[in-house]
Simulated assay, not measured.
Amino acid sequence: MHELGVVFEVVKTVKNIAEENQLTKIDKLVLQIGELSSMIPRYIKECYPAAVDGTLLQDTKLEIEIIPGNALCKNCNKVFNLLENKGKCPHCGIKDWELLSGKEFMIKEIVAC
């Protein structure tokens, strides 16, 4: 489970941002995770309490937004979800596409009190 190491890095990054901006309390942290990324949102949520224990983020609410794995069909130029359509364009049936989104993992928002 590599999610724990990633969560520790997120905590370190947020702590640095808080220090740079002289924040003393953070209410909410919002992460965006692509549904095609190697991160599993459930594992991120499970690791989070251990990673923030004893830190500025200890009482922070974690919110995770899932970014869909969307692609653009190179044949018909339609956008479609790769997982829902098993990698095949539902409009023309072709498997020739360009990835638009879904691999992301980023800190979207840090909400201070």
Rank of each mutant, 00 (worst) to 15 (best):
Asn16Pro: 00
Ala71Lys: 11
Asn16Gln: 09
Phe80Ser: 08
Asn77Tyr: 10
Leu100Ala: 07
Leu72Arg: 06
Thr60Pro: 05
Asn70Ala: 01
Gly5Ile: 10
Asn75Gly: 09
Val111Pro: 01
Trp97Asp: 05
Ala51Asn: 06
Asn75Phe: 06
Ile40Arg: 15
Val10Thr: 01
Gln58Met: 10
Gly5Cys: 04
Lys45His: 14
Phe8Cys: 06
Pro41Met: 00
Lys15Trp: 01
Val14Trp: 02
Val7Thr: 08
Val79Ser: 07
Asn75Ile: 10
Gly69Ser: 13
Gly93Thr: 08
Asp27Glu: 10
Asn77Leu: 09
Trp97Ser: 15
Asp96Pro: 07
Pro90Cys: 07
Glu98Phe: 04
Ile64Trp: 13
Lys103Thr: 15
Leu57Ile: 01
Leu57Val: 05
Glu84Asp: 14
Glu3Cys: 02
Asp27Phe: 04
Met106Ile: 07
Thr24Lys: 15
His91Arg: 10
Ser38Lys: 13
Ile26Asn: 07
Val11Lys: 02
Trp97Thr: 11
Phe80Val: 09
Gly87Asn: 10
Lys12His: 05
Phe105Glu: 07
Leu56Gly: 01
Gly93Gln: 12
Phe105Trp: 03
Leu99Asn: 07
Pro68Ser: 13
Lys28Trp: 10
Asn70Glu: 03
Thr13Asn: 09
Cys73Glu: 01
His91Val: 11
Glu3Asp: 08
Val14Leu: 10
Leu29Gly: 05
Trp97Gln: 09
Val11Pro: 02
Ile40Thr: 13
Asp53Arg: 03
Ala50His: 09
Val14Ile: 13
Leu57Arg: 00
Leu83Ile: 15
Lys15Gln: 14
Asn75Leu: 04
Asp96Lys: 13
Ile66Leu: 15
Arg42Cys: 00
Tyr48Met: 11
Leu57Met: 14
Cys76Asn: 10
Glu84Phe: 00
Leu56Tyr: 06
Val30Ser: 03
Asp53Ile: 01
Asp59Tyr: 10
Ile26His: 07
Lys25Arg: 13
Thr13Glu: 08
Gly69Phe: 06
Ile44Arg: 00
Ala50Cys: 08
Ile17Arg: 01
Leu29Arg: 00
Ser37His: 02
Ser101His: 12
Val111Gly: 02
Glu84Val: 07
Ser38Tyr: 15
Glu46Asn: 08
Ile94Trp: 04
Cys89Gly: 09
Met106Asp: 13
Leu4Lys: 01
Lys61Ala: 15
Asn16Ile: 02
Cys73Lys: 03
Val79His: 12
Val79Gln: 06
Glu109Met: 03
Val6Asp: 00
Ile66Val: 15
Glu98Cys: 03
Cys89Arg: 06
Leu83Cys: 04
Val79Ile: 13
Gly69His: 11
Gly93Ile: 10
Ala51Gln: 07
Ile107Leu: 05
Pro41Asn: 01
Lys95Thr: 11
Cys73Asp: 08
Glu35His: 12
Glu109Thr: 05
Met1Tyr: 11
Gly34Ile: 09
Ala71Arg: 15
Asn77Pro: 04
Leu56Ala: 07
Asp27Gly: 11
Leu62Glu: 13
Glu98Lys: 13
Ile40Glu: 15
Val10His: 03
Glu98Leu: 12
Thr55Arg: 03
Ser101Glu: 07
Glu109Phe: 02
Asp53Ser: 13
Lys45Ala: 09
Met1Glu: 14
Pro41Val: 00
Ile26Tyr: 07
Val52Glu: 05
Glu65Gln: 15
Lys88Cys: 12
Lys12Ser: 11
Glu98Ser: 14
Leu4Met: 09
Lys15Ser: 08
Gly102Cys: 02
Val79Thr: 04
Glu35Gln: 14
Asn70Gly: 00
Met106Ser: 11
Asn85Gly: 05
Lys12Ala: 01
Glu65Tyr: 10
